[in-house]
């Protein structure tokens, strides 16, 4: 699809936000708290911060909630009655302020929840999400989007990508049908495309490795001391998976209240020792090294082999949040 370029004034962003809220959309945007920047539900434009590199958490919870009801049930001795959670109405959600890496992460995430078994719960939510991303003007030592086929101004995954120009106004690249719909609904706010180039306004993210080369190297690296070496400090806390915008491993658990209850899908992590434990006590991934290997191979070998897209967008969240300072970039570049 052809990308349409517009200019949107800095002062018009708030109008756009208010129109979205006025049209009944739920808006999630970066909000600063004492120690973190989180995607939170916001009601007023003033609640949004634009002073952030990336948020601490990923935006995935909007389409893949941390705990999600799959169905509810009512049980008596004779009968069981099941109520499908996928028929419940899902709100239209605008993700405001995602970074290009966040938006790109929805591509592999959607792949995982489709294939031979389309996941209607995920697809219902995803179908109602608008991604209004903002290009990165800054980066830090944890960022490596350019090593995994991304960039600070990458349009993939976003519906509209805003890039702040030297004037303080924004270039608006309208990428998808959804983006075009929003522009049509807010026509007066979008002006003729600016003259100024996008590129000089983007962060310079260093390219540390080439995803295709890493993928090729990993083919023969299953047995290698690097996995134990790089994961010795790992506590198995699972924080890396929880903040990752692509990680989607989950557990299924039941919650029971008397004769009623729900079956839930909950976030899980390949870093947890119980993740693969057999009932017999046998564990195919017995050590933290084997679990770290799974994390790296899944993202940089298995996923791109299967669907052409890596399971890592280089946002660096896992490394920033790791209490043991394990750095995914350091592991990958040491290969």
């Amino acid at each position: 699809m052809q990308i349409d370029n517009y200019l949107i004034r800095q002062t018009s962003l708030e109008k756009l936000f208010n129109n979205l809220i006025g049209n009944g959309k739920t808006v999630f945007a970066p909000q600063a708290s004492e120690k973190r920047i989180l995607f939170e539900k916001v009601k007023a434009f003033s609640e949004i911060t634009d002073n952030y590199l990336v948020t601490t958490n990923a935006a995935k919870s909007v389409v893949f909630p941390r705990t999600e009801k799959l169905f509810s049930y009512k049980k008596t001795k004779e009968t069981t009655e099941i109520t499908d959670a996928s028929t419940e109405a899902v709100p239209e959600v605008v993700l405001w302020g995602t970074r290009p890496c966040d938006a790109a992460a929805f591509i592999p995430l959607t792949d995982t929840f489709n294939g031979d078994y389309p996941d209607i719960l995920y697809n219902n939510r995803r179908g109602k999400v608008y991604l209004l991303s903002f290009s990165c003007a800054t980066c830090d030592e944890y960022c490596f989007c350019t090593s995994v086929n991304g960039s600070p101004g990458n349009t993939a995954g976003s519906d509209i990508l805003f890039t702040k120009l030297s004037t303080g106004d924004y270039l608006a690249e309208v990428i998808t049908e959804k983006g075009k719909k929003l522009v049509a609904e807010n026509q007066t706010l979008f002006e003729a495309a600016p003259e100024e180039e996008k590129e000089p306004n983007l962060a310079k993210v260093k390219t540390y490795f080439n995803q295709d080369e890493i993928q090729a190297k990993l083919q023969n690296l299953f047995e290698n001391p690097v996995w134990d070496e790089k994961s010795r400090a790992c506590l198995g806390c699972g924080s890396c998976a929880f903040v990752c915008p692509v990680c989607s491993c989950f557990d299924i658990q039941d919650e029971k209240h008397g004769s009623k209850g729900t079956r839930l899908r909950c976030w899980d992590s390949c870093g947890f020792s119980l993740f693969t434990l057999h009932t017999s006590g046998h564990n195919p991934r017995e050590t933290q090294g084997a679990r770290w290997r799974q994390r790296i191979l899944h993202k940089f070998l298995y996923m791109p082999d299967k669907s052409k897209v890596a399971g890592c967008v280089g946002c660096g969240r896992c490394s920033r949040v790791c209490p043991a300072d394990i750095n995914i970039l350091e592991t990958v570049t040491s290969i």
């Binding site: 294939g115 078994y117 996941d119 989607s248 989950f250 693969t276 298995y302």
Partner: peptide, 19 residues
Amino acid sequence: LENRMKCGFGKCGRCNVGE
């Protein structure tokens, strides 16, 4: 093979043997 599973259809992410 009978690795631990939750979903049964390739999404929950735990039963893989290599790829």
